[in-house]
Simulated scan of single mutants.
Amino acid sequence: MDQTTINEASSYIQDKLGAKPSLGLILGSGLGVLADEIQNPVIIPYKDIPHFPESTVAGHKGRLVAGNIEGKQVIAMQGRFHFYEGYSMKQVTFPVRVMKQLGIESIIVTNAAGGINTSFSPGDLMVITDHINNMGSNPLIGKNNDELGARFPDMSECYDREYIQLAGKCAEELGITIQKGIYVGNTGPTYETPAEIKMLRTLGGDAVGMSTVPEVIVAGHAGLRVLGISCISNMAAGILDQPLTHTEVIETTEKVRDDFLHFIKKIISRLPQ
């Protein structure tokens, strides 16, 4: 994905927008309900946007929604792309490049994840403090475009510390108990084996999923401030004596819908301009 394709996609979207967005949102499995809260929405199906992939997973509507929420101009991905769908890392992260081109300065990335930390419970919301890239690839592999970011970007603070503190304060004000922890990105589409979960816990992982890490790497490369939030939709393999299903993921995210909406909207309202 070169600068030309980024420009073509962003120009198409810009022509549809009324105002320049300052905040990007990537909404994971079952969490797209936040896009329904956007006022005066401009809705753009992915299939209409030049060079955009299409989402193929249940719980991902596959469209951009732009407009106003809590006084901020936002652009939201109602559904994301995954490496396991057969897309390249550059295709998976292409929307982040496009949102940056459209003018966003910050991005909130959400996902549904399996709980590795045994003190977690399904339905918990976890603010991501760091991640482990266990995908065996990186979206920045290949020739670097210095206009987009540095060849060797620092990832020591890819999740913004000020935003993490703000999320904690917002949860406290709302009376919502949240977790904080390290997210492990695997390729999927298989759920992990019990042995793999034991390994990831040993490595320091608190939650595991099949997304987020590529987008955050590119956001960091692009100089965007990032807040990551996982909905712990199930306990990972080997913790509970039951099989894992995508249906369970969607059902759990539906149960925490209200807390998730209140939490994210509160954060958005308090983000610095």
Rank of each mutant, 00 (worst) to 15 (best):
29 S>E: 06
75 I>W: 06
32 G>C: 13
269 S>I: 09
18 G>C: 03
260 F>W: 06
38 I>L: 08
10 S>I: 00
182 I>P: 07
227 L>R: 11
225 R>V: 02
202 T>H: 06
126 M>H: 07
125 L>K: 02
88 S>E: 05
258 D>G: 01
36 D>N: 14
121 S>N: 08
52 F>V: 04
259 D>P: 01
258 D>K: 09
243 P>A: 01
238 G>I: 11
157 E>C: 07
131 H>W: 11
228 G>V: 05
18 G>A: 01
69 I>N: 12
146 D>N: 09
123 G>M: 03
235 M>E: 10
269 S>D: 10
13 I>D: 04
217 I>F: 14
5 T>G: 00
15 D>L: 05
104 I>F: 02
186 N>I: 13
230 S>P: 08
52 F>E: 04
170 C>R: 14
77 M>L: 15
178 I>H: 05
70 E>C: 15
136 G>D: 13
91 Q>W: 07
181 G>S: 12
117 N>D: 15
106 S>K: 09
189 P>C: 04
84 Y>R: 00
253 T>A: 11
163 Y>M: 15
74 V>K: 06
217 I>A: 15
170 C>W: 04
13 I>G: 04
182 I>V: 15
112 A>R: 09
165 Q>F: 08
244 L>C: 03
204 G>P: 12
55 S>L: 06
140 L>W: 10
83 F>N: 07
34 L>I: 15
50 P>M: 06
203 L>T: 04
12 Y>E: 12
139 P>S: 10
204 G>H: 13
273 Q>S: 14
269 S>V: 08
52 F>C: 02
41 P>G: 10
211 S>A: 03
186 N>R: 07
42 V>P: 06
100 K>L: 03
224 L>F: 08
43 I>D: 04
226 V>G: 00
151 R>T: 14
219 A>T: 11
55 S>F: 12
51 H>P: 02
156 S>D: 12
137 S>F: 09
28 G>D: 09
224 L>Q: 06
123 G>S: 06
191 Y>D: 00
141 I>D: 01
98 V>N: 08
93 T>I: 07
151 R>F: 13
54 E>W: 00
270 R>C: 13
49 I>D: 01
98 V>W: 12
215 E>K: 01
109 V>H: 13
44 I>S: 15
168 G>I: 03
72 K>N: 12
32 G>K: 11
49 I>N: 02
268 I>M: 07
145 N>F: 13
208 V>E: 12
59 G>S: 11
258 D>A: 11
24 G>Y: 06
175 G>C: 06
248 E>M: 03
96 V>S: 04
23 L>S: 11
57 V>S: 03
206 D>Y: 05
110 T>W: 02
201 R>N: 09
124 D>G: 01
91 Q>D: 12
169 K>T: 14
127 V>P: 03
196 E>K: 02
255 K>T: 15
248 E>C: 04
171 A>P: 03
251 E>S: 01
90 K>Q: 14
263 F>C: 09
63 R>D: 15
6 I>D: 08
61 K>V: 12
